[in-house]
């Protein structure tokens, strides 16, 4: 029995971690979120392990299982990396330009929208109602994609 080819499996698992750690861990801090450099470093480290493992798998004394499993894991890893690049650099930037969005100095368009109790709320109310018994200085409107 040949020694376990740990590099190929470590490379594969590290690839999965490199992918999942972005939405679940590194999204928390602007430093690791705005550009996913830490995730790309993890992918690079995984790639090194995969290459080492792949070379090892094709040594003549390795079993057939190893020779089949290694390329499959490598291809899967490359696909995961490709998906990451697509999601992080292409899909997430497909946002409309919003040229007509109210600019600094312009009046924000009035609206009436339902709150979580389906009660209508107007922008005028939001701006004019006091906060903690003090007149409101301003309102922060956060538009978000939705929870679905």
């Amino acid at each position: 029995m040949k020694k376990f080819n740990w590099q190929i499996w470590a490379g594969f698992l590290l690839t999965i971690f490199a992918f999942l750690s972005y939405p679940f861990i590194f999204i928390e801090w602007p430093l690791t979120r705005d550009f996913p450099w830490l995730n790309l470093l993890l992918f690079a480290a995984a790639l090194v392990l995969l290459i080492v493992g792949l070379r090892r798998a094709f040594k003549p004394e390795r079993r057939l299982f190893s020779k089949i499993a290694a390329p499959i894991l490598t291809v899967l890893s490359v696909l995961i990396l490709a998906l990451f690049i697509f999601v992080a650099f292409i899909e997430s930037r497909r946002l409309p330009a919003s040229q007509a969005a109210p600019a600094v100095g312009q009046k924000a368009p009035e609206f009436t929208l339902a709150d979580t109790n389906s009660k209508p709320v107007t922008l005028v109310e939001l701006v004019s109602q006091p906060i903690n018994n003090k007149p409101a200085k301003g309102v922060l409107l956060i538009f978000y994609r939705g929870y679905w």
């Binding site: 705005d34 409107l141 978000y144």
Partner: peptide, 24 residues
């Protein structure tokens, strides 16, 4: 809606805004 933030003053005028180009 695309992600966006607007800071309005008490007259309802936009004083600051952020239209991100990347939703992350």
């Amino acid at each position: 809606s695309r992600p966006a933030e607007f800071l309005l003053d008490s007259s309802g005028t936009v004083r600051w805004r952020m239209l991100t180009e990347n939703y992350w």
